[in-house]
Write a protein that binds this DNA or RNA. Structure first.
Lengths: 203, 203
DNA sequence: ACTGTTGGTCAACGCTTGTTGGCTAACGTA
DNA sequence: TACGTTAGCCAACAAGCGTTGACCAACAGT
């Protein structure tokens, strides 16, 4: 599982740079992959540059050359775009379940969110990024689906609390019951909750 | 070995020790208070013994003398017992709301849980302690209230996910909408969710 | 008054961290 | 072939960490 980084230059929008192919792309990718894994596993402070470099089988100084400093590395490590599916197509009463399934999906086959969750808790920059993701992904959905658009932030926040709580207990704290549930069952339980937070009359 | 082990013959071991009054109790308390605050604010790694000592206005070496090492200090800092009220008195259909209110309460006027949440994410011991709390507090309630006692762990886990998610967004990540809600409103929203996780037929 | 215990400070230790700069070797042209 | 650019390693730096032990001051019991 060395990296397939070069092909990630499919024209993504982070910067306008057309990604001039460098000879070091493989190394850069290896560093990024190792960083994601370490950040996800250990959190910001305990994930040392030296350990990441060793995982990527290069010298720590390379990390500095390519990413400036530790913060820069982390920023790069979680600059992946988690695209949400077009929930506009989903019927209004299924949005809750669709949302849960989507995030469950992203979390399951990408360590980035776990890393950000871990980091967001001790590192202010991480918290901000986390906040950004949920604002960008959840708020529009809430605004479109909930009865009074003025309520959208509150409703999005409630959804975030349930979805993040699920991720916390399942992927970070690993409470046995939360780990044991299948994705399907999880969606069965949480779907209605999220749906209610989005569409129910305020209590 | 400078520890208070010998004189603990006063009775029960773990807690309720008759607390032989030492001259340094004030200092010990100051250290513990500063530690709780720092751990809650910064997490385990970034809360340094030096900083805690400075907050308590004593020398770092005192921390070592009284608590052995950093782990010992943390263990002492979160060895507060959060007593849950006798939910046996609460009518079955109000348990959800009561539970949310209770945890909201504890979280609000005691930094310990925030500290543990923060620490539990990078520190295995913290995670275990967190798990213990929810097992001891939530599982019995679930077992008493839910239709099939065999489901209790799952239901308790689901409740934990929602309650921890609330705490995460409100007290750690500080998402604006989650912070803005009053405790009352929060209970209005989350109460039914927890209630459903506890008592509804499995979906 | 003498003495052992306790509360506390000070200065240092060994180690790990992020970070830097200089060096070598391979590459890509011209 | 010659040469500038790039990729990479090595050794070291300063700072901060947890931790230790020597040392002093105040108290308590006889």
């Amino acid at each position: 599982m060395t990296e397939s980084a070069p092909d990630s230059a499919t024209g993504k929008a982070t910067e306008a740079a057309a990604a001039p192919p460098r000879r070091s792309d493989a190394t850069r990718g290896a560093i990024l992959a190792a960083a994601r894994e370490r950040f996800a596993a250990d959190g910001y402070e305990r994930a040392t540059i030296r350990a990441i470099a060793k995982d990527a089988r290069i010298d720590p100084s390379m990390v500095m050359r390519y990413y400036g400093n530790k913060e820069g590395l982390f920023a790069a490590a979680c600059s992946i775009d988690l695209r949400l599916p077009d929930l506009a197509a989903v019927p209004r009463e299924d949005v809750g379940r669709a949302l849960v399934t989507h995030f469950l999906d992203v979390w399951e086959n990408d360590g980035v969110l776990t890393a950000m969750l871990r980091v967001g808790i001790t590192n202010a920059a991480g918290a901000e990024r986390m906040q950004g993701i949920f604002r960008d992904q959840l708020l529009p959905v809430a605004r479109r689906v909930c009865p009074d658009p003025a309520d959208a932030p509150v409703r999005a926040g409630l959804c975030a609390s349930q979805i993040l709580g699920m991720a916390l207990t399942r992927y970070v704290l690993r409470f046995p019951p939360a780990v044991a549930l299948s994705g399907e069952e999880m969606a069965d339980w949480l779907g209605p909750t999220v749906q209610r937070y989005l569409t129910a009359e305020r209590p």
